[in-house]
Computed example of a mutant assay.
Amino acid sequence: MISRQIVYRGAGAVLATATALPAAGTALATSRPPTSPAPPAPAPAAAPAPELVPGVPLGPGRPWQIDTPDQALPPKVFVPSEKEEAVEPEDAAPGTYDLIEYVPLDDAVGKVTCSRQTGPYQRQVERWLKRKADGRQSAADCKAIRAFQVKNKIKPAIGFAGPVTWSTMMLLSARKNPNAARKCPVRSYRVACVDLDRQLTWVQKGSKVVFGPVPMRSGRQGHLTRKGSHTVYWRHKNHVSTLYNEPMPYAQFFDGGEAFHAVYGSIHTTIGSMGCVNLKLGDARKLWGVLKKGDHVHVWGRRPGT
């Protein structure tokens, strides 16, 4: 489903509804035995997660607020003509994949220098920075997060532990050896590895990484990317979603309607895809040249917040 709302809500927000208790009338009080325990107090309502928005003003060529579609069902398989195969998908507009952090709406409007708010990836970011991982924002936390954001050109650098900051940390950690934990099977043939825990994907042949790792976006709550072993069964360089009439460049389908494909928007939103593995256009183009029909895909883990 396409969502063209600019505001995103942090994943995993839960609102607890307090149970209304009947008024304590005289008749009720006299009918209850003197030794009856008092009814439990209603649970306090949890505070809602902050509304997150791109942390810089929108403008031409910045479509990252758009939640791009996916193919929910297997495509109608046909053989593209040579002319179709020769045409490369359109490039993304300049600035589409800039590292623009999603921050609370009031922080963006107020143009704060250092956020006092706890981000959706607070604990993970604290742990990566080797700080006390208590999941609560402090002035020292903000300073450390802000320094990381400045170094890695993440805007706005206000110390908010959002999805872009966390994703950048995961990518930096995995560059030398993405399969250090050996969660992706090592085989003599190519295997496309989809790590839902860290939101990364790469391709390896034996122990050699031949593509990536690169950041990606997997399925949201209710549309989780299916785990397990799959096979690339159909590829279409200029595929268009039959459900939404929207482009899915460099689509490589591996399980029903789930595919690797590029999106013309940010892959770092707090909301996941409809099941596909979303990539930046340049990464999807390179992956197209690495994978072939019949190659293996292995998916494991769980997207944070789902």
Rank of each mutant, 00 (worst) to 15 (best):
I6N: 05
I6S: 01
Y8E: 13
R9D: 10
A16N: 12
A16H: 12
T17A: 14
A18M: 11
A20T: 13
L21K: 09
A24Q: 08
L28N: 10
A29N: 04
T30N: 03
T30M: 08
S31W: 03
P33D: 09
P37W: 05
L52N: 04
V53N: 00
V53M: 02
P54I: 03
P54A: 04
V56L: 14
P57N: 15
W64H: 00
W64M: 12
Q65E: 12
Q65T: 13
I66K: 04
P74N: 11
V77E: 14
P80V: 10
K83T: 14
P89S: 05
I100T: 14
V109I: 07
G110K: 11
K111E: 13
R116M: 09
Q117F: 09
G119P: 07
G119C: 04
P120I: 08
Y121S: 01
Q122W: 00
E126T: 08
K130V: 07
K132D: 14
R146D: 13
A157R: 08
G162R: 03
V164I: 09
S167A: 15
T168K: 12
T168G: 06
M169F: 03
M170W: 03
M170I: 00
P178M: 08
A180E: 06
A181V: 06
R187W: 02
C193T: 04
W202Q: 03
V203K: 06
K205T: 07
V209H: 04
V210A: 03
S218M: 04
R220N: 10
L224P: 05
H230C: 03
V232K: 12
H236V: 11
K237H: 00
T242Q: 15
Y244S: 14
P247L: 03
M248N: 05
E258D: 10
H261K: 04
A262N: 06
A262S: 12
S266F: 01
I267S: 02
I271E: 04
N278A: 08
G282P: 09
D283S: 06
W288C: 02
K292Q: 14
D295F: 07
R302A: 15
